[in-house]
Design a protein around this nucleic acid. Structure first.
Lengths: 146, 146
DNA sequence: CTGGATGCAAACTCTTTGCATGCAT
DNA sequence: ATGCATGCAAAGAGTTTGCATCCAG
């Protein structure tokens, strides 16, 4: 896609939310849409150096956060800052609260056979399939209602 | 479950793999099976202080790693050390290579309606459902074959 | 002009590593 | 007796915060 079109798109979204349009945001946005689909903050920083020699990691993080809020990118789901271990070892799935960071079990049967098969068709040796539902847990929903 | 039974179970598994049985391993194992199902390393450390005043965080991490290898616990899936961002924002899912850490897209339609519904029945406000397949990617599988 | 965005440095959290001691085998 | 497991300290990676400067509006 043309850089001008991408810039116009982002400009529209930013203005719509009363956010400023800066060269860093435009260039990082272009790189995100042009480069490899999956990137870390460091990788994006590296790719931006040619066009933004002085860009800093905090700016990249701030911009990625903003883009996620704007719906321009997504964070590939993780468990949050600290690793969580689970003493249940059977195949089951998780609920993760975006408010309090808590983790709970999802009590539901999910048919994952098709998923593992699809992965195998792509040449991937599937060993495990995990489903994570992100949202707001009952306790946090109650708190915000009051 | 009785602590003696738990200890016997772990002892059997450890001996089966030629691993040593230590008090730290026994106690941490008991706590994992008794305490809250989802824990971080720090939380487990805190809970073990009463019985193991001098236990250290590196030991907790080493023990958790070992237990995961033994299949005694599972790590709740994350994206690995560095956060990964994705420039695709439609609902789609991921393949994660346990060998190289790479992330790819899963090209498959998954029916997630039932899952979100089940979460809602538990009082959870579901905003997003992610499916992650862990395994070995084609490139790494090829390398290990040679 | 004015306040939000940036760059720099430093702090912070989580996790891993190095090495001497101790204990399970 | 042997060597793996432990504890301590320190290093390391990734991310966030504080603050002065700068620039988009």
């Amino acid at each position: 896609m043309d850089a001008n079109v991408l810039d116009a798109e982002l400009t529209a979204v930013l203005h719509g939310r009363g956010q400023r349009v800066t060269p860093q945001r435009l260039i990082l946005h272009r790189l995100l849409r042009a480069g490899p689909q999956h990137l870390t903050a460091e990788e994006l920083l590296g790719r931006s150096r040619a066009q933004l020699p002085n860009v800093s990691l905090p700016t990249v993080y701030a911009t990625l956060d903003l883009f996620e809020e704007l719906g321009v990118i997504r964070r590939v789901p993780g468990t949050g800052p600290a690793q969580v271990y689970d003493s249940r070892t059977d195949g089951h799935h998780h609920l993760r609260c975006m408010r309090c960071g808590g983790v709970g079990d999802l009590e539901a049967d999910v048919d994952l056979g098709g998923i593992a098969g699809a992965a195998r068709e792509q040449g991937f040796v599937a060993e495990r399939v995990d489903v994570t539902v992100s949202g707001v847990c009952p306790a946090c929903a109650r708190d915000s209602a009051s």
